[in-house]
Structure formats: C-alpha cells, structure tokens
C-alpha cells in the first residue's frame, strides 16, 4: 500500500422502504461490487474508471426507483482510517475465498460428472470474487490452487 491515502468513490443513497424488492436489488448489486459499508446509506470503493462508473449507474437506478443517490470522490482523512476499511474489505474477501476452498476440497470427493460441474462453477465464482477483490488476502492464492487442483482431477477423470 502507498504511503498516502488513496482516492475513493462514495455513494450516498436513500431508497424508499417499499417495495422491499427494489432495496434488495440494490443491496445485491452493491454486494456484488464488494463495497465497504461506511454507514447507513453510505458505501465506498477505491476510485477508478470502472468503480466510478458502476456506482454512478447504481445512483441513477436508485433515482429511477424514487430514491436519491449522490456520488462523491474523497480521500480518507488519515492513512490509518483507510487501512481499517481496507482490512474489513480484505477480511470479507478472505471469507469468500475460504468458502470456495471448502467447496473445492469437498468436490475432490464427488462423483466425476458432478466434480466437473462444480469445477466450472467454482472457476466462475473465483473470477467474480477477483473482480471485487481490491485488497487481496493470502487466501486468494490458496483459492486459485484449490480450483486448479480440482481442474487437474477433472482432466484426469476425462482422460
């Protein structure tokens, strides 16, 4: 990590309480992006062209459903604060990678056909987690290895 706190993009939003399906849609989208939740109706991501655009479109979508969303560019007041947020995000991704490793390891004992299906699913899941992994934890490499091991076994099943 660099010595100075980086740029973050913040989305401040309000969503109507009803219908709850709209709230859930937005929550799922934000989860998928791997946002840091800084408070009620305030989420953040490290700023780059992609994250800024993604949150901007979500802000618009919230507006279209009768809520309000504003996008901000900001840097944390201190490096220590940024590290706390980054650490939370890293822990969240680590938990996702660990769940994936567990699934890959149990799939080693599955039937070959099922094993092949699970390997494909986990490969896609690994890519999805990677897209929202801004501060990679040690578990990332272990997860890649677990999926690779599973794929090696699948290739042996096929030969």
């Amino acid at each position: 990590m660099t010595a100075a706190a980086g740029q973050w993009v913040l989305l401040s939003y309000r969503i109507p309480r009803q219908p709850s399906t709209l709230r859930i849609t937005i929550w799922r989208k934000l989860d998928r992006l791997g946002v840091a939740r800084l408070g009620d109706g305030l989420v953040a991501l490290p700023a780059d062209a992609r994250t800024r655009e993604q949150l901007d479109w979500i802000a618009q979508e919230i507006g279209e459903m009768g809520g309000a969303g504003t996008l901000w560019l900001a840097s944390p007041g201190s490096l220590a604060q940024e590290q706390v947020i980054a650490e939370d995000m890293r822990r969240a991704r680590a938990a996702e990678y660990r769940a994936l490793i567990d699934q890959a390891q149990s799939a080693m004992r599955a039937r070959p056909g099922e094993r092949s299906r699970i390997a494909k699913r986990l490969q896609a899941e690994l890519r999805r987690i990677g897209r929202r992994d801004f501060f990679p934890p040690a578990e990332r490499d272990a997860a890649r290895r677990a999926v690779d091991d599973l794929k090696t076994l699948v290739a042996q099943d096929a030969s």
Binding site: D56, W57, A59, Q60, E61, G63, E64
Partner: peptide, 10 residues
Amino acid sequence: MRGVELGHHG
C-alpha cells in the same frame, strides 16, 4: 451518461 435518455435504464 447518467440522467440522459440514451443511458442505462431498467
């Protein structure tokens, strides 16, 4: 662009 007709919708 955000807020224009020819943007992301639904």
